[in-house]
Design a protein around this nucleic acid. Sequence first.
DNA 1: ACCACCATGTAATACGTTACATGATTCA
DNA 2: TGAATCATGTAACGTATTACATGGTGGT
Lengths: 186, 186
Amino acid sequence: MSLRHAILVLLQDQEASGYDLAREFANSIGLVWNATHQQIYLELGKLNDQSMVKYRHIPQDGKPDKKLYRITDEGRDELTRWLRKPAAPPRVRDAFMVKIAGGSMSDSATIIRELDDQTDLRRERLNTFEALAAKLNDTHQDRDLFTYLTLRRGILDQQTWLRWADEVRSALEKREEQASSVPTSV
Amino acid sequence: MSLRHAILVLLQDQEASGYDLAREFANSIGLVWNATHQQIYLELGKLNDQSMVKYRHIPQDGKPDKKLYRITDEGRDELTRWLRKPAAPPRVRDAFMVKIAGGSMSDSATIIRELDDQTDLRRERLNTFEALAAKLNDTHQDRDLFTYLTLRRGILDQQTWLRWADEVRSALEKREEQASSVPTSV
DNA sequence: ACCACCATGTAATACGTTACATGATTCA
DNA sequence: TGAATCATGTAACGTATTACATGGTGGT
């Protein structure tokens, strides 16, 4: 229920359209909360009804018209209220890890194939985050500090995942050896 | 959509009631996928309708009757089919991290208070996982290997989180120093 | 007395996903 | 010619959360 708060956090900095927000959810804040454009437009509608945001209608030519949203004082109040009360622990829902937990039903090759795919993805992310973090190191604004800390979390997370994947690989290699030394395993 | 698969993974090993499964979702597999009893009973109903599980009704005295579910061949087929096709990347939804991203609106003390609460929680989890992993090291069954790998993921995750929290603490301490040296900051 | 544990469920509501829909512009 | 970008939305469906409901046993 804090899609609304993620939106308000983004609107703190600048006026933005739903489209702009969707792009940021695919990048920066998407690292910790993701949402699709449908959810965003819907939530912007609700936030507007509750006058936590307001918008100006911008006609454009060559492009569709857009609505530029900005946070209101009520919105800012809601944000600070939310920031003060403790957040519920995030619910975990990692399908890939369910597969690992049920891994004894798969053969090692199938698991390793998917592990390698995920590894590529994580490595890419790590590069993206590291590049973004490197850019921040020069400037020293208060907001950048929190962007930096968010990125740090992402970086450490990817690194840890990659380390874990290495452990899985060597464990599965050993498993293969044992499977081949004992002709038909139970 | 893989609550069903998480349930099937659990039923691989033993016959269990909805209540038993709920307990395991609060422990072992809850590390990677969590669900409440309502979801579980509902999903067991659906799985039964689709004959992926079946149950025996066990009357008890002193306690309410229960239904012991077991996986069927159809259920096992469904599981192996699912295990073979790639899982979608998990979507992140971490409210606490949204707070960090919007941290420039809070004062450091408020953030650190919540950080400390989360730290306690993570440390507790780390201990639990480490204790469980230590128990596994003796036996060497194939299933234990995957339980171990799942636990390893949890352990590395908690450790990384704790390391990150330390970084946040020192960054916020520096921030405080700067805030006090410059009387009224923007 | 009261709380926790065992064991199952229903119902209302909120939230999220997928598919559908439109239409001009710009770049390969 | 076809895909991507900009920009907004609706509708149907599926999943998740919260609250409600029941009732005996065993421990503090």
